[in-house]
């Protein structure tokens, strides 16, 4: 996993609530057995006007000019600004894979769906929950200013706008540590293998029927 420390990145506004993971990456792309290469299909049904298939070359597909990701001013965006309940629906990790593969490293919304939120951290993406008022302000400023960038500092847990307005965000120390250092959970957890074994012995004594092998 790529570490995440600080980012000064262009913002792309996606002004819809309840954006679901089927919209982020439609099901036909879930047939892949790999975890990379999903970026060109991010928001496939909104982004292109023809039907996307896995493995398709997207360079010459007809694009929907009204969709934000296709607008010239948002090319190269690394921060996705969204509305409530972003990432709801299926648990598919293909959604954060596609977001990361496209080039986004930060998402800001008033709320995220639970599974999507935790999947994001596992892929070096930082989802930031900000109040609806702040998110609204960012949408307005972003619309008014071409080339609108935000400065995101994970160590300090702050986001700063071009005008110098700054707000803080919450993150658990565990997630922060993993993101800052690009650590994957499995290695960390296996440092506690003895504790897992000890728990298992106790658990087996209490509920032997759970251990059939």
């Amino acid at each position: 996993m790529k570490p995440f420390t600080r980012l000064n990145g262009l913002v792309c506004p996606l002004d819809r609530a309840n954006v679901d993971t089927d919209a982020i990456i439609p099901k036909q792309f879930l047939k892949s057995i790999k975890r990379s290469g999903f970026g060109p299909y991010l928001f496939d049904e909104w982004r292109y006007t023809n039907y996307g298939e896995p493995g398709m070359d997207c360079t010459n597909r007809p694009k929907n000019p009204d969709f934000v990701l296709n607008q010239p001013r948002y090319q190269g965006a690394q921060i996705l600004l969204a509305r409530d309940n972003f990432g709801c629906g299926s648990s598919r990790e293909h959604a954060p894979w596609a977001i990361e593969d496209y080039g986004f490293r930060v998402m800001i919304a008033p709320s995220f769906a639970d599974i999507f939120f935790s999947n994001s951290f596992k892929n070096g993406i930082l989802p930031i929950v900000a109040s609806a008022e702040i998110v609204d302000r960012l949408f307005k400023e972003c619309a008014a200013t071409e080339g609108y960038k935000l400065d995101v500092d994970l160590a300090a847990q702050t986001v700063t706008t071009p005008s110098g307005f700054s707000f803080g965000f919450d993150i658990t120390p565990h997630r922060k540590h993993c993101l800052l250092n690009g650590l994957d959970d499995i290695g960390l957890t296996l440092q506690h293998a003895d504790e897992i074994r000890a728990f298992e012995a106790k658990h087996k004594a209490a509920q032997p029927w759970l251990f059939t092998a």
Binding site: R92, S118, N119, D184, D185, I186, T189, L190
Partner: peptide, 11 residues
């Protein structure tokens, strides 16, 4: 998610 599937398998 899939990373967690791997985590549960491994730990």
């Amino acid at each position: 998610g899939t990373s967690e599937v791997e985590h549960v398998l491994a730990t």
